[in-house]
């Protein structure tokens, strides 16, 4: 018996038989998690460019409110023209003291993003460090990385299971940022199964404690394909502060080019 078992043909057969269930299962939790985000990415391909108006309402523990208004424009990267990440332009409208201030970000996949800030009072374009991911965005509960365009390779993934969230059947996926500059150690993301839209994110800070919860609602579909959120709520779980973001006036495919996201275009951004 022992001899039989150890003879090469039997070994071969046994290993084939052992592999069958693996082939059927096909995916590990890591693979399934990643596949969900690849599908999100795939469904958003070729949007070209879009812009929207964003209003942020910042609230502190005692309920005081403050408002930020800006215009956000995104040019899709990774297409035939741009072999790199997305490019974004944000022009601030309120607080009025900083109105006209504009920020351009060129996202990169393998290195820090490039960022330029235009200060209208000085007529100055200032290069700023793109390593500022974890920093607060204009005093809100959103950090730069929360608002930055997301690439699949920015995280490693692990599928946790299925869960109902907001009456929708969702995948729950854990993702871990690859970048050491990230302010997070891990995030749990709820993605609805029907349209692959992110519904909720739990953020864990560098001490691995739950710091913020983001819920995204009021999705609308544009060009019969692209889903964009109308309302984002970010609530800090540790200091009671929160930021609501309302996004309106989405306009797709205005025919923008890289020239609209250059340092020169910053100087005439209005």
């Amino acid at each position: 018996m022992r001899n039989n078992l150890s003879n090469p043909p039997f070994h071969f057969l046994a290993s084939i038989l052992l592999m069958i269930p693996l082939l059927v299962q096909a995916e590990t939790a890591e693979q399934k998690g990643r596949a969900i985000f690849e599908e999100i990415d795939r469904r958003d391909l070729n949007f070209g460019d879009f812009s929207s108006d964003q209003e942020m309402i910042l609230r502190n523990k005692s309920g005081q409110e403050s408002r930020r208004i800006m215009e956000n424009t995104v040019l899709e990267g990774g297409n035939k023209d741009i072999n790199d990440g997305d490019k974004t332009l944000i022009i601030f409208r309120e607080p009025k003291r900083i109105r006209g201030t504009a920020l351009i970000t060129h996202a990169h996949q393998q290195r820090d993003d490039d960022q330029w800030l235009y200060l209208p009072a000085l007529g100055r374009v200032k290069r700023i460090s793109g390593a500022s991911k974890a920093g607060s965005f204009v005093g809100s509960e959103f950090s730069y990385e929360d608002l930055a365009p997301q690439e699949v390779d920015d995280y490693t993934y692990e599928y946790i299971g299925d869960e109902i969230f907001a009456e929708q059947d969702c995948f729950k996926v854990k993702r871990v940022p690859v970048d050491k500059d990230s302010g997070y150690t891990q995030q749990f993301v709820w993605v609805d199964k029907s349209e692959y839209r992110i519904q909720k994110v739990e953020f864990y800070d560098r001490k691995a404690t739950l710091i913020k919860i983001l819920t995204i609602t009021s999705y609308q579909q544009y060009l019969d394909q692209y889903w964009r959120p109308g309302y984002l709520s970010m609530i800090n779980q540790q200091d009671g502060k929160s930021t609501d973001m309302i996004a309106t006036n989405y306009v797709f495919r205005q025919g923008l080019t890289e020239a609209d996201f250059s340092e020169n275009s910053l100087r005439r951004a209005r």
Binding site: I128, S129, A131, S132, K133, A134, G135, S136, G183
Partner: peptide, 14 residues
């Protein structure tokens, strides 16, 4: 040089 430290004192201050 200019050097920036983000989220000092475990807060959102820079």
């Amino acid at each position: 040089f200019e050097y920036n430290i983000y989220s000092i004192f475990e807060s959102s201050q820079d």
